[in-house]
Each structure stands twice: as structure tokens, then as C-alpha cells.
């Protein structure tokens, strides 16, 4: 995992993260999920490419059930882009780099 990615360990930590960063991209995943393992290197690339503009984080849905319920995660991987603390865009499932780049580019000024 890229060093630029923040691993979220509590709901409080998550709330601070989306409060203190204008743009946050969050990968909801779990260890048992094969499609999540496919997306992981893509998320690493995103974190490197957008390191100056976007904070990238990971939420393990098994450990952080409160957050997965809050954002209605029903299939993983789900990647959500937060703009000023609010959900701006969401991608579900295995997607190529370009899909995540698009969701960022279309939402940042």
C-alpha cells in the first residue's frame, strides 16, 4: 500500500479526515474480497498521481461497520469521492484507473 494512503481506524478519525481535507477519495474494502485486491494497486496509483490535491484513504468494512452502514456500502470495492465532507461521486466494483481519475477530475476545481 502506498505510504500516501491513510488507513482509517475509527469513525472519529474518518470524520476529522473529511472535515480537514477538501478532497478525499475513500476505498471501502475487506481482506476477503478478491475484486478489492484487484483495485488496490489502482488506488495506489491514484494516491501517487493526485498526492498534492486529494487525500486518499481506506476503510475496512469489517472493522468499521458504522461507516459502511452510514454510506450504504452493499458491494465492495466501493470508492467514494468526498468534496467538502459530502459525497460527490461513487464508483462500485472493479474499475480501471481512468474511471477514478474521471471522478476526481470532474469534481475538483
Amino acid at each position: 500500500m502506498s505510504k500516501k494512503i491513510k488507513n482509517v481506524n475509527s469513525t472519529q478519525e474518518f470524520d476529522e479526515l473529511i472535515k480537514n481535507n477538501r478532497y478525499v477519495l475513500v476505498d471501502f474494502w475487506a481482506a476477503w474480497c478478491a475484486p478489492c485486491r484487484m483495485v488496490a494497486p489502482v488506488i495506489d496509483e491514484i494516491a501517487d498521481k493526485y498526492s498534492e490535491k486529494v487525500r486518499v484513504a481506506k476503510v475496512n468494512v469489517d472493522d468499521q461497520q458504522e461507516l459502511s452502514i452510514r454510506y450504504g456500502i452493499q458491494s465492495i470495492p466501493t470508492v467514494i469521492f468526498f468534496k467538502e465532507g459530502k459525497v460527490a461521486s461513487k464508483e462500485i466494483g472493479v474499475k480501471p484507473m481512468s474511471s477514478f481519475a474521471n471522478m476526481i477530475d470532474s469534481n475538483i476545481a
Partner: peptide, 16 residues
């Protein structure tokens, strides 16, 4: 509803 309760893979999404 794909990804919102519709799934094609039990081993992928079952744990949720």
C-alpha cells in the same frame, strides 16, 4: 441495483 444488492458473485460480496 447492481452493487446495491444485486450481485453476480457470492464469494465476492457474500460477507456483507
Amino acid at each position: 441495483l447492481l452493487g446495491s444488492g444485486v450481485s453476480y458473485c457470492a464469494t465476492c460480496d457474500g460477507m456483507l
